[in-house]
């Protein structure tokens, strides 16, 4: 067994999981307040572009990262305004903003660089540094897998804990969970439900902002058209599979990161690239399907009624 290959593969999984972890946490935090954030995709895309543009202007990755997060939060604010204040349908709002993000980022990119495909040639943007973990990096194999990742990868792990703490240990978390479960109860004691939803959406934007920044400011340092490529939706699916648990989302993210890494590997094996590109999306649909079947089975087992009814129906048919 070639261990070097395995080390590299595991390293790639962690790398590719990072944006998914951010996206999934974004989905989790808004889900807790009873909002499905289907606009993660657009938020990440906007963050990726703002990060590149401002880091190129200021030549500072810190400013780039901050503006990426701010860009994503701005998107969250716009969407919140639409569905909380002027009362648009949430799903429609998210679809519309995703649409606008794809077109809008290309529009802005073209105005700034004259290219509709990528900023690679025109903008010299910065990258967020890699971090070598002291001590761990010296452990054979394990060090090679765990150390030397981008700073944001470690931030994403920390964020999992942060999200958990926020949701279960703080006042705002308590209120968010209450809003998600019984908004009228929260309303009745004078807490503004829209405000709580807005805060959770804004936090969702913060996570998406980090995810977007990772896309355009870590392993590549440019923005390209539609570069998030569905990761926002995969993040949504991860949240769903993990039942909106932050820690569960971390685990599920690695599964999807693994699928992504496998696709990358297959690409090197002379398989048709178009078929390989389908892998992450196909895995998403399959995973959602499987988890739903498992959940329904589990419910059925609790309620013997269903299976019994089916069994009896077949027995009757057999007679």
């Amino acid at each position: 067994m070639d261990l070097d290959w395995l080390v590299e593969f595991l390293f790639t999984i962690i790398r590719l999981s990072t944006p998914l972890i951010f996206a999934a946490l974004g989905a989790v935090i808004s889900r807790k307040a009873g909002v499905l954030n289907l606009a993660l995709e657009g938020m990440m895309l906007v963050a990726a572009l703002t990060g590149v543009v401002f880091s190129a202007i200021t030549q500072s990755w810190i400013v780039g990262l901050l503006t990426a997060v701010l860009g994503s939060m701005l998107m969250a604010t716009i969407i919140s305004y639409c569905f909380l204040v002027i009362k648009t349908d949430l799903y429609l709002t998210c679809i519309a903003t995703n649409m606008a993000s794809i077109g809008g980022t290309v529009f802005v990119m073209f105005l700034l660089t004259g290219s509709k495909a990528t900023t690679a040639e025109a903008l010299r943007s910065m990258s967020i540094p890699r971090i070598d973990l002291p001590l761990i990096k010296d452990i054979p194999y394990i060090g090679d897998v765990l150390s030397g990742h981008n700073l944001l990868t470690y931030v994403s792990f920390a964020m999992v804990f942060f999200a958990w703490f926020l949701i279960y240990k703080t006042r705002i978390g308590l209120r968010m969970r209450a809003v998600g479960e019984a908004p009228e109860a929260v309303e009745s004691v004078g807490i503004s439900v829209p405000k709580i939803k807005y805060i959770s959406f804004l936090l969702s934007g913060v996570f998406a902002g980090f995810g977007g920044a990772f896309m355009s400011m870590s392993y590549v340092t440019w923005f390209s058209r539609d570069m998030v490529a569905g990761r926002g939706f995969i993040g949504m699916s991860i949240m769903n599979i993990a039942n909106a648990s932050p820690v569960g989302s971390l685990g599920a993210s690695f599964i999807f990161g693994g699928a992504d890494a496998t696709a990358k590997y297959l690409q090197l094996q002379n398989l048709p690239t178009d078929l390989v590109f389908m892998v992450p999306y196909a895995v998403t649909i399959i995973a959602l399907t499987v988890i739903s079947i498992v959940r329904i089975r589990r419910e059925d087992r609790i309620v013997h009624g269903k299976s019994l009814r089916r069994k009896k129906a077949t027995e009757k048919a057999a007679e």
Partner: peptide, 19 residues
């Protein structure tokens, strides 16, 4: 670039959908 139309489209959707 014609992409700006996508932004305009999104705004129309939002305004029409805004109760």
């Amino acid at each position: 670039p014609a992409e700006f139309i996508q932004v305009i489209q999104a705004i129309v959707i939002l305004l029409v959908a805004a109760q």
